[in-house]
């Protein structure tokens, strides 16, 4: 069969108006169904004719999935809330600015106007072999094309790779993990809540999925507890181009500093592995230490323990070290005279 791209194949479209209707459809069609949020990830797969769901369930009409609600000092963000709505929400900006910064770093304004927070955290890997339709492990094959002696893999993983070396590209995910967010998942059997850091899975667990979502599951909301409201935050994303590009790496930290010492801290790096990495070893090491350059440097060195570079991504090791350092102790700004 000859390969042809760019034209979406036919599918049956459903635009349910309620979560219950969406769940019933997802349950009914199971693996034949594709649940679409903003569609930015979806259309690539469909236009490339690589994924061919028989049914597309478009959540755009489900009003109850959209919006940011204040819940006991924290927030509940509907999964279909657009990134722009998250970025512009006054409470997010005021108390959880790490999330607005992270979400605003994603993609481009128009994508953020349509792309949803649920979609951003649930998006698939962007490895160019995988997305190019090469039948790799992640696509159900038996090979990783990005980890071969000749592969070009500057954007791939330095940690926790298991056959597949793709990374998670989300910019909002590390911010959510740093904020101890929880993901609310529903299916026709009921609702379950998982911690943001457990929402993501690596290839060793399931090489074909990025999250715990299975057919029939719907991410309906993300809850942000009051725990880190107003804490000190740091978010930085390093990318090739300042628009559209996925992170070469990003870092998010939330910190409470008392008397110059780090009292509480959560620190997360993404695009270093197939799932966002919460750096608990670093957190443990710097907790109680003064927030200064030395602590930052120590944290940076711990962060990269065990990192294994591929042929073209060795730079990610110093990058991760430096970003973690900055996430702990801040950036030394230039003072041009």
């Amino acid at each position: 069969m000859a390969i042809v791209r760019d034209i979406m194949p036919a599918f049956e479209l459903f635009q349910p108006a309620t979560v219950d209707d969406a769940l019933r459809l997802a349950d009914k069609y199971g693996k034949d169904a594709w649940v679409m949020a903003g569609g930015l990830d979806t259309f690539d797969w469909l236009k490339d004719r690589i994924k061919r769901p028989k049914v597309v369930i478009d959540l755009s009409q489900v009003a109850e999935l959209r919006g940011v609600r204040e819940v006991s000092g924290g927030l509940e963000i509907g999964a279909m809330t657009t990134l722009t709505e998250v970025v512009r929400h006054p409470v997010v900006r005021e108390k959880f600015s790490i999330l607005s910064t992270g979400a605003e770093a994603a993609a481009s304004p128009q994508i953020r106007n349509q792309g949803t927070i649920g979609g951003n955290v649930s998006q698939d890997a962007r490895c160019w072999y995988y997305r190019g339709g090469w039948k790799c492990y992640r696509a159900g094959g038996n090979i990783c094309f990005a980890d071969t002696p000749t592969a070009i893999n500057r954007e791939h993983a330095i940690l926790n790779a298991d056959r597949c070396v793709a990374v998670n590209p989300s910019d909002s995910a590390p911010a959510l993990i740093a904020l101890e967010a929880q993901m609310v998942i529903r299916n026709t059997h009921g609702e379950r809540v998982v911690n943001a850091e457990d929402y993501f899975i690596g290839p060793s667990i399931d090489i074909t999925r990025m999250t715990v979502l299975k057919p029939g599951d719907l991410l309906t909301a993300i809850r942000i507890p009051a725990t880190w409201a107003g804490a000190q935050f740091y978010f930085e994303k390093v990318r090739d181009r300042q628009v559209w590009d996925f992170p070469l790496m990003n870092v998010a930290s939330a910190m409470v500093v008392t008397g110059g010492n780090i009292e509480r801290i959560r620190i997360v790096v993404n695009a270093a592995a197939a799932h966002p990495l919460r750096l608990t070893a670093v957190e443990d090491a710097v907790r109680g230490k003064p927030r200064n350059a030395a602590t930052g440097e120590m944290g940076g060195k711990i962060a990269i323990a065990g990192a294994e570079p591929l042929r073209y991504n060795g730079y990610k090791i110093p990058l991760m070290r430096n970003l973690v350092k900055r996430a702990i102790s801040g950036v030394e700004e230039a003072q041009w005279t």
Binding site: M1, A2, I3, W134, K135, A139
Partner: peptide, 8 residues
């Protein structure tokens, strides 16, 4: 089970 190789 078959797959399409990068060469189609």
């Amino acid at each position: 089970e078959t797959a399409t190789s990068p060469w189609g």
